[in-house]
Design a protein around this nucleic acid. Sequence first.
DNA 1: CTGAAAGCGCTTACAG
DNA 2: CTGAAAGCGCTTACAG
Lengths: 355, 355
Amino acid sequence: MEKGEDEATIGVKEIARRANVSIATVDRVIHNRTGVAENTRKKIQQIIKDIDYQPNLLASRLASKKVYSLAVLIPEVSNETDYWEAPLNGIQRAESEIGKYGIKTKIYLFDLNSRASFIQQTERVMADKVDGVLLAPSFIEESTYFTYRCKERKIPYVFINSDIPNQDSLCYIGPDLMKSGYLAGHLMSYGIGEQGKVLVVNISKEMDNHHHLLRKEEGFRKYFEDHQRANEIVKVDVRQTEYTALEETLAEVFSIHPDIKAIFTTNSRISSVARFVEKSAKEKLLLIGYDFLKENIEYLKKETIDFLICQKPEEQAYRGMMTLYQHLMLASEVEKVHYMPIDIITKENYTFYSN
Amino acid sequence: MEKGEDEATIGVKEIARRANVSIATVDRVIHNRTGVAENTRKKIQQIIKDIDYQPNLLASRLASKKVYSLAVLIPEVSNETDYWEAPLNGIQRAESEIGKYGIKTKIYLFDLNSRASFIQQTERVMADKVDGVLLAPSFIEESTYFTYRCKERKIPYVFINSDIPNQDSLCYIGPDLMKSGYLAGHLMSYGIGEQGKVLVVNISKEMDNHHHLLRKEEGFRKYFEDHQRANEIVKVDVRQTEYTALEETLAEVFSIHPDIKAIFTTNSRISSVARFVEKSAKEKLLLIGYDFLKENIEYLKKETIDFLICQKPEEQAYRGMMTLYQHLMLASEVEKVHYMPIDIITKENYTFYSN
DNA sequence: CTGAAAGCGCTTACAG
DNA sequence: CTGAAAGCGCTTACAG
């Protein structure tokens, strides 16, 4: 209730009047610009404090010629996966909505298979002096270092696709990786008995001990533990990501474990696994993987792939951009973590899916 | 990528120039106001269409004297529960942030125990011609009718606390009631064996067949089904909500079912149940209920209540207001459903909780 | 170190 | 039916 103070919204003009200066001087103080006598500054600061002045951000944005530039640091669409096309679309959608309010976007693409390219792009971002960053922190250490430098410069950054917790990001928008893997485990449990072995496949040239794919694996395993399933879980990290190398690796795994009944592939490369399965498997295997990509859908249609898990990649990026915008422009509060829904795509429902 | 058209943001001025009229006339057309020659109107409309004119909403809001008034339709704080204090705080927080951008808030409180009071307040809202509504649709039919009338008048409305799906609300912000009950079931399963009976208590004067508390009960039961628990579930709807009546009812239930081991109360009235239990129970019962209220916390401290489930009531209301604001002012997109986290409060962690 | 003035892209009386 | 002008609350050169 309590409202009181309805004194006709106090603004720079009123502050100027009270301080006996011009609004230009008030503006200088508000923005901590130089060229104001210490006394004047103090007096104005006191008034600002007294009346608890809150600038009108709409007016501020409208009058300002300042353009905020946002850097987007995500993987490029590769011939291995065009997953990253969707986030790119989301970014463009955001751009077209907020472009006219003084937000410019600059996109920095790196090669998911090359740590070096990531580092290189972070250097470009730093050099370009941007006002906010949207990034997929695919390489944990490098991202940590990069965001550390952003923090120093007070540049806000938003993580999408995978999170690095406690990194002081403005927020994270993307899947709950653990839950997502857990769900995969759950789905898999329906299709296999207590006996069959299951295979977990992580495909990435840059696999390491804290890769985000491992969080999905962890969730997946947790399901089996929580439900005391007896199934043996075989796992393989594939670092040679070309199809022929992958085929060779999988063939070897299957020669050792011919009784594998189901495969969980922790990213969008499930189509390559499906290709192998079609070619080599004697019996129907249960396949679960990620992402609404054309080639994945093809295998889904043919029932080689049973389930695809998808987490609105376009929306992640769109939301990320809008969050940065609102933070910069409206100084509005931001929720630290925004988990995307975990969508399950099957042969029956894929036509209705929207990213 | 494609951007092209960087033609220095076209605005009313440029439209006026092209149409050979003044910007006032352009403004009239943009807002479908009367008093423009049909020819002029057509010409301007064509130009607007051609250049795909998007008004600068910041400028629009700044220049406009128009004040948007938002109605808030929620239960009053009663002597039965002060749960609704928290949402009220959230509303005030929102108000203080957006008040200066031309948003005025008017609060309409109804009595949770009186359908009539709800109807009465909806009539007042309709009479007051507001521009947006935040409401807790406690009475389903009446809310449905009310929102139907809002829809007719193109007044956006946001549900909080409980949802009525497919009602064309701008969005819902609140708990996933089913999941919340399901979680309660899960928590309860830890504390009781396969034998004991469990009691579900719904306390509301206005209990009916589609009351939202029933969705929590449903989720709760579902947990027991999904996990094939043998426990018998006894249930009681308490419509006489004063403590003495409640005590009587519970005493009767316990005389019939002396082997009840645990109680799930589907709303904040758990403290009354706890009071009864302290007074009458011979052995320790497991109690689970809702909401971070002073009296509930007291029983939590004494371990009479084992778990409280809480879903950020202040945040729900704050978010709801901000969503209406952004929708009205920035025409920004809104996600249809925003589920709040399901927070579990125990004796150990309650001091750290924030609504 | 300080101020007067123009301007951001709209809306709103007011006058004709 | 139409337009000139002031103003929303800021920011930004520019002049002194």
